[in-house]
Simulated scan of single mutants.
Amino acid sequence: MSEMTWKEYDQRVERVPVFIPVGSTEQHGPGLPMNVDFVIPTEFSERTAERVDGIVAPTIHYGAKSQPGSGGGSEFVGTTSVHGGTLRRQIQDVIGDLERDGAMKIVFFNGHYENEYPIREAIDRHIEDGTRATFIIASWWDLLSPSLRDEIFEEIPGGFPGWEKEHAGVIETALMRHFRPELVREDEIVDDEADRTPSHIVKPAPRETVSDSGVFYRATYGTADVGRRVVDDVTDTLVSAIEKEFA
């Protein structure tokens, strides 16, 4: 979208899906850059848009506040977040302008765990105000088929730990090795986890519930080949959803 002229955009916006990648600027351990959460949804959006003749809007780079149990939180230097209400208002404003210009098929592709509810609330409020558009909300981890997920994790010690504990772990490392290998600090990739993982939430988070490195699981197992398989699987799933919901 940002590389189109307004006339080129005007000729297509009413007919095709418009993708809005939503990410964050957040630590991902010593081996991955802080742009992981917006690189991944942007790359997925671009690949999917190519298959459905869509338009990719500029990515939202700042996400809802990183939480200690799923991203390390603000204890890590560089993690730069906004309050959920701030993100919700930004998304509402963006939706308003997109729909004003004729967008009828809008896909929010999310790459940051904590963004899910601000995105939903923004759309809910927009619907309450009246809308003609149809929305799809997708987080890449929800689109990964259980069969492929189980296949990837079956040979990893500890198995699948749950998505909130996969931060900077197997799949994110694999996706970055596939999408942007030049940004991966290969000599710094480590396996790590917190000393204690309570089933409840404590704030402020006790130090032993956050890993020292910012890696929550077994990043060394995230190969580029795993990334390629995840990309193929998730993209196919999203294309099918778009073809069904926007038929």
Rank of each mutant, 00 (worst) to 15 (best):
K7F: 13
E14Y: 10
I20T: 05
I20Q: 07
V22E: 00
T25M: 13
T25S: 14
T25E: 13
P41L: 10
T42A: 00
E43C: 10
E46G: 09
E46W: 09
E46L: 14
D53E: 15
F76K: 01
T86I: 03
R88Y: 04
Q92D: 07
M104I: 03
F109S: 06
G111D: 14
H112R: 07
E114I: 00
Y117C: 01
I119H: 02
D124L: 13
D124R: 14
R125D: 08
H126C: 09
I127V: 15
D129K: 15
A133F: 08
L143E: 15
L148Y: 12
L148H: 08
R149G: 08
E154I: 04
F160Y: 15
W163I: 14
E164V: 07
E166F: 11
A168W: 02
A168M: 06
E182L: 01
T197Y: 06
T197W: 08
P198C: 11
P198I: 05
E208W: 00
V210A: 02
G214V: 00
G214Q: 02
V215P: 01
Y221A: 15
V226P: 03
R228M: 09
R228K: 15
V230T: 10
V231T: 14
D233A: 08
D233Q: 11
T235W: 00
L238Q: 00
S240N: 10
